[in-house]
Design a binder for these strands. Sequence first.
RNA 1: GGGAGCGUGGCGGAAUUGGCAUACGCAGUGGACUUAAAAUCCACCGCCGCAAGGAUUGUGGGUUCGAGUCCCACCGCUCCUACCA
Length: 851
Amino acid sequence: MYQYDPHEIEPKWQAIWAEANLDAVDDKSDKPRYYALEMFPYPSGDVHMGHVRNYSIGDVISRYKRMQGFEVLHPIGWDAFGLPAENAAIKQGSTPATWTYANIEKQRASLKRMAFSYDWSRKVITSDVDYYHWGQWIFLKLWEMGLVERRSSPVNWCPDCMTVLANEQVVGDGVCWRCKSIVQRKELEQWFLKITKYAQELLDDLDQLSGWPDRVKQMQANWVGRSTGAEVDFTLCDADGEPTAEQITVFTTRPDTLFGCSFFLLAPEHPLVREFVSDTAYEAEVARVVELAASATAVERSKGEREKNGAFTGRYVINPINSEKVPIWVSDYVMMDYGTGAVMAVPSGDQRDFEFARKYGLAIPPVILATDDPLYEQLKDQRERIVGDVPWLAAYAGDGVMVQSGSFTGQPGGKDSAGAQAVIEQLEAAGKGRPTVNFRLRDWLISRQRYWGNPIPAIYCDACGIVPVPEADLPVVLPMDVDVSKGESLADRPEFYEVKCPQCGAAAHRETDTMDTFTCSSWYYLRYTDPHNDKLPFERATADNWMPVDQYIGGIEHAILHLLYSRFFTKALRDAGLLGFSEPFKNLLTQGMVKLNGETMSKSKGNVVAPEDMIARYGADALRAYILFMAPPDKDLEWSQEGLEGMYRFVNRIWRSVFDLSGEAVVDEEGNLLSVYDKSLGPDDATSRGAELNRELHRVIGKVSSDIERFNFNTAISAIMELANTVQSYIKLPHGLRDDELSTRAARTLVLLLAPFTPHVSDELWQRVLGEQDSVHLQPWPSYDPAQAIASTVELAVQLNGKIKARITVASDADEEEVRREALFAVAEAIGERDVRKVVVVPGKLVSVVV
RNA sequence: GGGAGCGUGGCGGAAUUGGCAUACGCAGUGGACUUAAAAUCCACCGCCGCAAGGAUUGUGGGUUCGAGUCCCACCGCUCCUACCA
């Protein structure tokens, strides 16, 4: 025998598999289909441990499904556009394309070295023109459908990235998701995708996603943020306090509190603010508050508690429910981009309004009272307002009874309460309000003022306005040689932006903004199904055939951004008639992070364990198995070098055991015998150890199968280790005492079960040692007989009043009566004179006796 | 402020529907082999106790013949989200 040497066998088998095209996918296969997908990498440098974990999970699933007889689509590609490439290019004086494609080559080599079973002919790179061409095509399709809009809006601007950001890309305390700079608010004209049209469906369809973690669904639901309530129209008064024909509408989730509205608020950015105060005595103070809001947001945002600032505008509105005149204030805690940018303030029912009222001395009349409130007895029948200020320390936002609320007094109040309903009905009858649903979700801002992205296919013509690039003129090719390191951008390339208007032929100007990279990653999973199509992004029949993805695997950090956008794209493309389904990812597995000493590995912290180094020491097989063994896939994993060494030892042990089982004595390099036979063992030991091994084989096949199905790779591997331990005990038998059929079956089973985890050593043992002709990876997954997995006798614990007092051994098919008798006999002494009140027999587990 | 999740040996973790807590591995201890070391093999290895035995899954209660698992309260940690009206 020769020594296990991963560096010899791993490259060898990779070459053989590539030659045999083992991982190619057959579109025409009549096998059942399975689509396993891992989130494609961003080519930011070398492959890291997070990738190794992500792709090892996907690879085990893919290989397992293939052995189970599925035709498995298991593709890979690169999410190649984006800002890091520009930043790196600036640093290195290179171009984003050079940097990106060099990294892709590096990563590709690493992924191949890990033996992930991708069909490489389906590789998709988003910065390749034959991919982004179809991204532009889809953009035009969405435009046709009315889902694209260019409009002016307050947007998030990252001063370091020099570009706008989507709402989803502003994270934490208002910082850029990528560079962590503080994001500024700017009013700019930008391109939007109208994802809000799908808000309700994006929410509703979460119910279909039974294969998604609840956590992710919850996060998406929160992000879409549906709240039910009403719009209420307040009549605006002119500068003299007289009612006008104009109205200002607010959104509220608590119409039942409308009688408690003692002031009215506008967001600082609200267009009416300037109009109200210009050339009035209020102008200076209001301007101060508006400026404070604009400049202080960044600083204030990082503090948890924010001081509320406001100023009176000098104007009033009329409350439609009681015709009361209330003052309009401007305040920085009102957001322009949620609801209508105007708020009816009810300080007794909303903590923010409460604090604001206290600060500025505004009235806080109680309108909803809990029945145990001291005020309740006094006010329960009170229609007119007699209490103008509550004695409370905080607002009361819970359920209660409406008081001081005219004819509504006495009705139940609270969110979605009967009282709220009644108020809405009265407002509606008066034409002053209506029930409404409000979403937190904003439209998706997709334009970026950056070079390295997919060009937006639009042209500005002085005569025709904004004109889409005709489909026949696609693709709009991104010049690859723009030198961002010298500050160059698309706006410096006349040959790019100087065009003729497609409609009137006049000189026009091409859009030089590019699309958010998340547009590229919102449909790549569809392209994999039909990667070489040069007529369409994908053929509908082909996509429908493979989709939806059976198992998607990736990091939790994409729980909102990428997954929400992809769901939106799928629904929009469905409505365009391009797809026949509504949800792209049937099952989702969010894998945990790989950490070192409790911290995320990162280059800046200098605590990165490089996969390449680990492969160089222990080989890809040990690394793959280790990273799956150390923790369940969805939990964070603490890196341990000793753990990896342990896995390497395990692979070595398998290697020796299979040699021994196949009849070859195991020797080391110097010819010393490593096989240790126990010469004291006789035929009886051979029988009992043989029976045990047979039982274990059946049990472990069943266990590993169900564990892989449930993604419990860690316990699947520990079950294989248990089998290996049983084998270890069996091969203590000298060869003459062994059962050849059993030995061979054990060896084959070990290798087959390990094939998805450790593909190289498995094929080496399968073909070279066990002498099989075809690759282990083309074998059917082993089957088992549950009946043979059970021992003939079983040990039961006997509990007396909940404490284990004895153990009995009975035949595993013994009937309950017999077990009961045995158990009572075993604890007879402990029972003594006491009466047996109850006996519970749990077959195969224990007997519980109560006295 | 709102939402979600998690607490089990020295460590990573296991216990699938309520049924013998600590599987499997790491680390550790002892032994065999060796001139020696490494590798390998064998054995031990949660806590208190010399032992018999006892207590034990963050803490306290509850349901149950039986609770790591279910229910209530509390403590601690993590993640998401946030002036969302």
